[in-house]
Write a protein that binds this DNA or RNA. Structure first.
Lengths: 214, 214
DNA sequence: ACCTGAACACCGTTCAAGT
DNA sequence: ACCTGAACACCGTTCAAGT
C-alpha cells in the first residue's frame, strides 16, 4: 500500500488503525482483494523459490512459478532486493502473529517454548539471507527495526505471562533471548540433525529451572 | 620445535611422547630454556598487542614491545600469519589445560560450569581473529583440527565426570556444546554487558535441570 | 580546475654481520 | 646456534609542480 521514497512496497498488512484519514481508493473491494491475493501468492512463491534455489534465484523464475507476468513483480518490487525484503518482512509477521495463537492454545510455559522453537526455525530458514542482509543495500535498512518492533513485544508478552504464572525465572529479557537464539540458529557450527533445536531447548530448560539469582 | 613444509614453527609444547626418536639438539638445556622463555614472552606480548590493537598490528611493534629484534620474530614465524596462528594455538592450550586444574579443585558440576565460562571468555576474546581465520591463509589450516583435538576431549571429560556424578543430564555431547557456546560468544548480537555470559549460564542451567528425555 | 609523479611514511620480509 | 637491525621491496597517500 505505501510507497516509500525508494519506491519499495513496504506494508502488505491492513493498517486501517492509524487515525481516521484514509488513502484515496475506497469502493473497489473486489479488486483490492484480488490484488491482495496476487501479491500474497507472489510472496509465498518467492519464499519457496528462495528456500529451494537460494536468494540469487532469477526473478523471472519466481514470476513464472507464481503465474504472473514479470512486469507485475517489478511493479510491486522495483528492485529484486525489495522482493527479498518483503518476503522477510512477511516471515517476521507470520512469526510474530504465531505468538498470540500459541498463547491462546497453550499454557504459558508451553506457549513460550513452542514459540521459541518456531522462532528458531524462522531464523534457521533465513540463514541463506544473512549475507544479503549485510550487503548494505538500502532496501534492507528498515528490516532490523521491523524485526525488533514485531518480535520483541511478541516474546516480551510470552515471557511476562510465563513469569507471572511463576513458571520461569524473571531475570531474562526478550532482547537478549532473541539474540541468543538467533546466534545459535544462524551459526554454521551447528548445522546437522537438529543441533540448534536441541541447544535452544537447553536454553528453555535453563529459563524454567535456573536459579532466581546468579 | 617441528618445522613444517611451510616453515612455520608449529609446536611449542613439550612433545617428548611420540616414540623414542628425538630431534638433533640434546645437551644444551640452558640455551633451550632461554630460547623457550624468549618465545614465551614473544607470544604473550603478541597476544596483548593483538588484543589491544587488533590482528593487523605491525610485527615491528610486537617485536619492540617484546624487547627482541624483528629478525628474531621472523626466524620463529616466517609469516605474520604464523605468529597469529601460534598465539591462537597457545590460547587453545591454555583453555584446554584449565580443564584439569578446574577438575581438581571443584566438584564436577562446578568444574564444568567454570570451564564453560572460561571457554566462553576465550571465544569472545578471539572474536577479532575470526575474519583472519577465514582468510584462507594456509597457516590457519590446522587450527580447527587443533581446536577439536584439544578442546573436545577436555569438555568431554568434564561432561562425563558430571554425568557420572548424576549432576547433569546425559544426552548432550561435547561437540554441540562447544559449537553452541562459540555461536553465542562470537555473534555481534549480544555484545554488551555480559549478555553472552548470561546466555551461557542459561545453557548450563538447562544442562543441569533439563529433562532426561526430550 | 585538473593531472602528474616524486616524495613520504609505513609495512612485511630478508640477510650479512655480530655475539 | 642465536640474535640484531639496516636494508630492501612494496604499498597507500600527499602535494608541489606542471598543464
Amino acid at each position: 500500500m505505501f510507497r516509500f521514497a525508494s519506491g519499495c512496497v513496504v506494508n502488505d498488512r491492513t493498517d486501517d488503525s492509524d487515525g481516521g484519514l484514509e488513502p484515496p481508493a475506497r469502493a473497489d473491494r473486489r479488486v483490492r482483494a484480488d490484488a491482495r491475493r496476487n501479491l500474497d501468492t507472489l510472496l509465498q512463491t518467492a519464499l519457496s523459490v528462495f528456500a529451494s534455489s537460494g536468494v540469487d534465484a532469477p526473478v523471472r523464475e519466481i514470476a513464472e512459478r507464481a503465474g504472473v507476468g514479470i512486469g507485475t513483480v517489478y511493479r510491486h518490487f522495483p528492485q529484486r532486493s525489495d522482493l527479498i525484503a518483503a518476503v522477510f518482512r512477511r516471515e517476521i509477521d507470520a512469526c510474530a502473529d504465531a505468538a498470540s495463537v500459541l498463547s491462546a492454545g497453550h499454557k504459558p510455559f508451553d506457549a513460550l517454548a513452542n514459540w521459541m522453537q518456531r522462532y528458531a526455525a524462522f531464523v534457521a530458514a533465513k540463514r541463506g539471507l544473512a549475507k544479503a542482509l549485510h550487503s548494505g543495500d538500502p532496501a534492507f535498512d528498515s528490516l532490523p527495526g521491523y524485526f525488533d518492533q514485531r518480535l520483541r513485544p511478541a516474546l516480551r508478552t510470552l515471557l511476562k505471562t510465563a513469569t507471572d504464572a511463576g513458571e520461569i525465572r524473571a531475570d531474562v529479557d526478550a532482547d537478549e533471548l532473541l539474540g541468543a537464539v538467533a546466534s545459535l540458529c544462524m551459526s554454521a557450527h551447528n548445522a546437522g540433525s537438529g543441533r540448534a533445536e536441541r541447544m535452544v531447548a537447553l536454553l528453555i530448560d535453563g529459563l524454567r529451572h535456573g536459579a532466581k539469582s546468579s
